[in-house]
Design a protein around this nucleic acid. Structure first.
Lengths: 108, 108
DNA sequence: TTAGTTAATCGTAATATTGCAATGTATAAA
DNA sequence: TTTATACATTGCAATATTACGATTAACTAA
């Protein structure tokens, strides 16, 4: 097959997995860190900073936008990418809740 | 290509991405939630609970073990899988630090 | 208009992931 | 020993991801 069987999982499980998947590539982590530091929000600067080809960065930006972690605003010929603050907070919360679920103890 | 260019990223970025990637599948989220609730830690019970074939579950368990989120102990014919408490704490911390990095403000 | 700049999209190759049937391995029970 | 049970491994098909060259679209400046 190769396709994930999303139907058999809960909406929450699918959502967490989707977000985690978006964070599951070092280039996307690097992009987010760059945008957090706010060194620049232009795609061109990201291409220079990260060292992947422009279409590749563009693709990663698209992924991040799809799950809502960032937003992009057209500014003349440039596109300004920024962290989507509200969504980031919500996603951060979603993952934190999952990560802080306490195990009832170990059996091994 | 199709292979991630890990060389151009920092060890931290790669580590975060690897962990996130392991969390990037609903079956693996479901497995972890099951183990956290500790309804059972046997592979066979996971197969029944989740609804994927036994080899598929086994593969997901292997992934989770590889990044250190769980550990498995052989107990007779069964294998007992558990959350790896120390690693879980460390990973949780790693992601939390990343998620709580505050943006210096938005420009768009 | 023309030329230059920025970034998205298309097309494609290389590689990775997901899922499962079949099979293998190890322990336990008869 | 034989049989059953639990799980790992292998091998394979379907699909997804990663990366980039070439091209396109949209705006700006001359």
């Amino acid at each position: 097959m190769g396709a994930t069987k999303t139907e058999i999982f809960t909406a929450q499980q699918n959502r967490i997995a989707l977000v985690a998947k978006a964070l599951g590539h070092p280039a996307r982590i690097a992009i987010l860190e760059f945008l957090i530091k706010l060194e620049s929000c232009f795609c061109g600067d990201l291409v220079k900073d990260i060292g992947l080809a422009q279409p590749t960065i563009s693709q990663h930006l698209k992924e991040l936008k799809k799950v809502g972690l960032i937003k992009g605003t057209i500014e003349g010929t440039n596109v300004c990418y920024c962290i989507h603050e509200e969504n980031w907070k919500e996603i951060s919360e979603l993952l934190s809740v999952f990560l802080n679920k306490k195990s009832k103890g170990t059996c091994c």
